[in-house]
Amino acid sequence: MKFRTAIAGEDLAAAALGGPTSPRPGRAARLARSTRQLPLAPALIMLILFFLGPVLWSIYSSFTNAALTGDGAANPQWVGLENFRRLFSDPNVTNGIWLTVVFVVGSAVIGQNLLGLAIALLMRGRNRWLRGTVGAIVVSAWVLPEVVSAFIWYAFLGQDGTLNQVTKALGIGSQDWLYSSPMLAVIIANTWRGTAFSMLVYNAALADVPLDVQEAAELDGASGWRRLWSVTLPLIRSAIVTNLMLITLQTLSVFTLIYVMTAGGPGFASSTLPVLMYQQAFKFSEVGYGTAISLLLLAIGAVFSFVYVRVLKPEA
């Protein structure tokens, strides 16, 4: 009964808002109206089964000692907050949180964002050929599959790699960058891989900045930096916010690049949360504990995603 009134209410709302309703609400029409949301069903089922389900299951199993093999796999025991207590006293996890922050700030907020903005700004007013060539090179780094980028950087930074060839030629000496500074290595690789996205977003945003505003500021005697800081950047503020949120969310979940380049090593020196989660769940077969780590990652992502939706305020 309640269900039927709910549907009737919807129809009233639909009629009031100019939605398609038939003039005579007969039995058939009512049926048609209640079935017209039906095309949503497959999407809903998939999202519930593969998205919501696993998230809810992970909340449950993070309170158990579920494991891939052995006793924990057959009948997981309820362990309460044990996994979380362990989580925040585990130096690898606190280290992983710190490395994730370093990775996101270093490669997304500073690397991709600033470099992408710089390239987009530098491209303005350059000739077509230079714009096109540099743009194509930067985009090609973005188009390549992640595993391939990881191999390319593995070769580039290795003991006999290109970078050491250059530093040796300059007389600085060589080192195995993946071993001596793994975080710097993966940050540079991820910056290389992701900058194109920021560049494209800022190219599009800058194209909307009217030229006469620039010229007016120039006539008022504003210097280049001044014009950038007080005229151009405020005009593309919403693009900057959107871009920062998107690349932060993308970078939070980077696994493949780090896993192929360093496998989280040496030791745990580049085990960001996604890599640590994988290691705990699949390498050490502790699914319950790995799930607790993945919940932590999910919670951080959820906060950023929530802020993103609020900032974007789309007209749904």
């Binding site: 593969f50 998205f51 389900g53 696993p54 998230v55 299951w57 992970s58 199993s61 579920a66 949120m245 998107l246 969310l249 939070l252 979940s253 980077v254 696994f255 996604p274 989660m277 994988y278 769940a281 699949f282 699914v287 790995g290 799930t291 993945s294 919940l295 990652l297 999910l298 992502g301 959820a302 950023f304 995603s305 993103y308 939706v309």
Partner: peptide, 15 residues
């Protein structure tokens, strides 16, 4: 769209 898919891979494997 913003949630890190990587994070649900352990529970999805469980599923």
């Amino acid at each position: 769209t913003g949630l890190p898919i990587t994070a649900i891979m352990v529970p999805v494997y469980g599923l």
